[in-house]
Computed example of a mutant assay.
Amino acid sequence: MATIAHHPATDAAPGARRLGAALMALAGLAFVGYAVIFFIRNFTGGFLELGIGPHEVDVSRAQVQSFSPDLFRYIAHLHIALSGFIASTGLATAALAWFGVRHGLWWAYVTAIVVPVLALIIALPAHYPYHFATIGHLGLIYLATAIFAVGALVALKPMLHARHT
């Protein structure tokens, strides 16, 4: 088990590292919040994802359900499953940042970055060719990603400094 050693004399900016970790963790929790919204919308009249409406999808929940109950259940199961994966990614990122990056652990910093970046690299490109990249749909994700990136950059300098001392 790795131990966490703090050396205040050599750790030039523990406050900056903690701030960066807190921003990264906040962004991770924002992903969890988005997942909760996603999950709830599956069971409400909205059905479709946040920011997706008649301009993007020309049928309603009731129309999908009447057209094909099996397709409706399939879409609902995808919403539920995807909300779980979004929430777990956010929770993992928040935990890595709060319990690892905050204490200067490089493996946690790298993993906290790789986890959401991998998810976004896979998920975001599919939004653009199908015109689902609306600000109403992806705005919260963009905001959380921006907060995360700022946090990662704020934490990077003290992480590098501690590594070289």
Rank of each mutant, 00 (worst) to 15 (best):
M1Q: 12
A2Y: 07
I4Q: 07
A5W: 02
A5N: 06
H6A: 15
H7T: 02
H7K: 15
H7Q: 13
P8A: 04
P8Y: 09
P8G: 01
P8L: 04
T10D: 15
T10P: 08
D11W: 03
D11P: 05
G15Y: 09
A16L: 13
R18Y: 05
R18M: 02
G20Y: 08
L26F: 14
G28T: 01
G28R: 02
L29F: 11
L29H: 02
A30R: 05
V32Q: 00
V32M: 03
V36D: 03
I40S: 08
R41C: 11
F43R: 10
F43D: 13
T44W: 12
T44L: 14
G46V: 03
G46D: 10
F47Y: 07
L48A: 12
E49F: 12
E49Y: 12
L50V: 04
G51T: 14
I52T: 11
G53Q: 12
P54H: 08
H55Y: 06
H55M: 10
E56A: 14
V57W: 01
D58G: 05
D58R: 08
V59A: 02
R61D: 01
R61N: 04
A62W: 00
Q63G: 05
V64Y: 04
S66N: 05
F67D: 06
F67C: 03
F67L: 08
S68N: 11
S68M: 06
P69G: 12
F72Q: 07
I75T: 11
I75L: 11
H77E: 12
L78W: 14
I80H: 06
I80V: 14
I80W: 03
A81K: 01
A81D: 03
A81H: 11
L82A: 14
S83G: 10
S83F: 08
S83W: 05
I86P: 02
I86D: 01
I86V: 14
A87G: 06
A87F: 03
A87M: 10
W98G: 06
F99E: 00
F99C: 06
G100Q: 03
V101K: 05
R102H: 11
G104V: 04
L105R: 15
L105P: 08
L105H: 12
W106G: 14
W106T: 13
W107H: 14
W107G: 10
T111S: 08
I113H: 08
V114S: 04
V114Y: 03
A119W: 10
I121W: 12
I121Y: 04
A123S: 15
A123I: 04
Y128N: 09
Y128Q: 05
P129C: 12
Y130V: 15
H131L: 09
I135Q: 10
G136S: 07
L138R: 01
L143F: 01
A144Y: 02
A144T: 06
A146V: 06
F148H: 07
F148G: 07
F148W: 12
V150K: 00
L153W: 11
L153G: 13
V154M: 09
V154N: 07
A155V: 09
L156H: 09
M159Q: 07
H161N: 09
H161Q: 13
H164Q: 13
H164K: 14
T165K: 05
T165L: 01
